[in-house]
Design a protein around this nucleic acid. Structure first.
Lengths: 341, 341
DNA sequence: CCATCCCACTAGAACGTTCTAGAGTTTCCT
DNA sequence: AGGAAACTCTAGAACGTTCTAGTGGGATGG
């Protein structure tokens, strides 16, 4: 019952070379697909490698070649959007011949630990999802290797930034509600969360643009369900006709209290979330929301990381991606008709 | 604007040793915290390392020492439960001095690719979350290194299994509903999904145990919202008093249709999900469900992997964890009263 | 028929660590 | 005092690859 595999040594390039009757160097050439090997030999070596179950040792390979073609990614297991983004990142990195090495932030594993883990892995650039690390520390890190911060504006000349235009996202939400015929549109903000001030500002900008200054009303909120619920209670004695929320989670909290109080959504009040979280598309929630462009974000991050690694000059330090409105069932015209699309 | 860091070589152990005026070997001893270095020298080397910003190169270290103390983990970005499990796994691995190396399955990156990536990383064991790989292929893999399959029973003597007792989970759901006073309890299964047959069997077992054979009714379902919705339509002309669902997602689909048809939940019909997905605890959904014990699963997997790596004998090939019922707002007694807890 | 070039191939160093074996010192015991 | 034992430290091999610098031989060209 004990492990049977512990005894046998892993098969190495030397084993393959010996078995095929060639030098280690030539075996290496064949395995890498480099030029400089005859067709017959190439076939023979490949056959032997296959037969012996040879797997190259990336550690040795990278140790020697210096380059690792590895991009380190720090993500947070608690954020569903991060895993969506991982999908895009794998695609984008694969397309330009880079690999990803992942390190997770969890409730009991902080960002510092996650980053340190990656540093030992000799990756050539770091992509950080919504980093909470202080700007100064990011600067120290960026002095050592290219660093791309995502979903967070960072004022540090060595740190690249790839993010969604959050102000624009709020504007899209307001524009949508206005186009449905709403005027009394309020906003529940995200408190001290990163991105909160941009989204708040976008709301104000759009309201002003539509000449609705008199209706501008901002409730203090936060990222959680409870924050949305609290805001819903607060607006009870003066209900608006539509609400633009800081994010999807707080939107569900608001929705719940609103409906509990007998308001029909979207009949009486329209609600727009932000993030297009996976649960927002559940039939049960069916939330109109602002989506971040995953592929554009991922592509931007990889392009930027690779440009820095390979020393290509880049135009702007910040890459700002356009958000997109996803119309679902929580928004309609104030008369009760369903919205366009 | 071009990368400033590309020129300078990374500082190596040799740099530290030279600067501190000791041999590389001694510097290595100090960095590893091994015995065999004087207190004064130790302090000096550490100071120099700190000053030069030395980061050990794990690749070189592992290359030489053979051991990597690395456990490879394959998870699927689409499954929220997998990220919960990652949290527990980091904790469990850290506690016994092992590191994790992650490889994700995405819609465009299959399990084979994810596993291959890890194999090159020289990890000493593989932990696969809900693997879809064929048993035979798992066997081939297991011949090379310890493999732990999670959340899926695998009949292969070299593959360890750590999973929740899914049959027992279904029984818990039924027991709960019976204790509330329900008798007409039906089950919507998961079709061909792994775990589906166990959960179906558990339902039957519990119903029989409660002497409710005459009420046993199993609707064909699946893992998605749509599957739950379809089942809800099917049971429309003969509505039960309670439903035990295959998972949370299909439960929300069912809930939605049920309520759309004017049934009150839990007033008219109680619904119990399975998995305790993050969205199930949203106030808006508030689903009674069966939770898997994340820490026990993670701990079991790590303990098993480490035992195999270190050649310790293990008692049983399968580790089966008890599930736990989480009572929320979708279950109540058929008379309309709210349930216990 | 000799120089030239290209092609298939090889020997051996190098990457940054850890590990083994052993060399000097100092301390301790008798 | 004489050796054993215990420390601190070092030289150099080893890990499994890639890379540099070549070697030998056959084809090409004049």
């Amino acid at each position: 019952m004990a492990a049977m595999q512990s005894g046998e040594r892993r098969t190495t390039l030397a084993d393959v070379a010996a078995e095929a009757g060639v030098s280690v160097a030539l075996a290496s050439i064949v395995m890498r697909g480099a030029s400089g090997a005859g067709a017959a030999t190439r076939a023979r070596v490949l056959e032997v490698a296959q037969r012996l179950g040879y797997q190259p040792d990336s550690r040795a390979r990278l140790l020697r070649s210096g380059r690792s073609r590895l991009i380190g990614v720090v993500f947070d297991v608690r954020h569903p959007f991060h895993t969506d983004l991982l999908t895009g990142l794998y695609d984008a990195a694969g397309a330009v011949g880079y690999e990803l090495t992942l390190s997770a932030v969890t409730p009991r594993r902080d960002e510092r630990t996650a980053i340190d883990g990656l540093l030992q892995d000799r990756c050539e650039a770091l992509v950080l999802f919504s980093p909470r690390t202080k700007v100064a520390d990011l600067g120290v890190l960026a002095a050592r290797m290219p660093v791309v911060a995502m979903m967070r504006p960072v004022r540090q000349r060595d740190v690249d930034v790839v993010r969604t235009d959050d102000a624009r996202g709020s504007e899209l939400a307001v524009d949508h509600l206005v186009s449905l015929g709403h005027r009394r549109i309020v906003h529940v903000d995200g408190g001290t969360m990163p991105g909160s001030s941009e989204r708040r500002q976008g709301y104000v900008t759009a309201m002003t643009r539509h000449d609705l200054n008199e209706y501008i009303r901002i409730y203090p909120g936060g990222p959680g369900e409870g924050d949305g619920a609290r805001a819903a209670e607060e607006m009870r004695n003066d209900p608006p006709s539509a609400v633009a929320m800081f994010n999807d989670l707080s939107a569900t909290g608001l929705l719940d209290v609103l409906r509990g109080h007998g308001h029909r959504v979207p009949g009486d009040i329209s609600v727009v979330g932000y993030d297009d979280s996976s649960f927002s598309r559940l039939a049960h929630i069916d939330l109109t929301t602002v989506a971040q462009d995953v592929d554009a974000l991922a592509g931007g991050a990889v392009r930027r990381a690779v440009a820095r690694i390979e020393g290509t000059d880049v135009e702007h330090r910040e890459v700002v991606i356009e958000p997109r409105l996803v119309v679902r069932g929580t928004s309609a015209s104030p008369t009760g008709e369903s919205g366009p699309a």
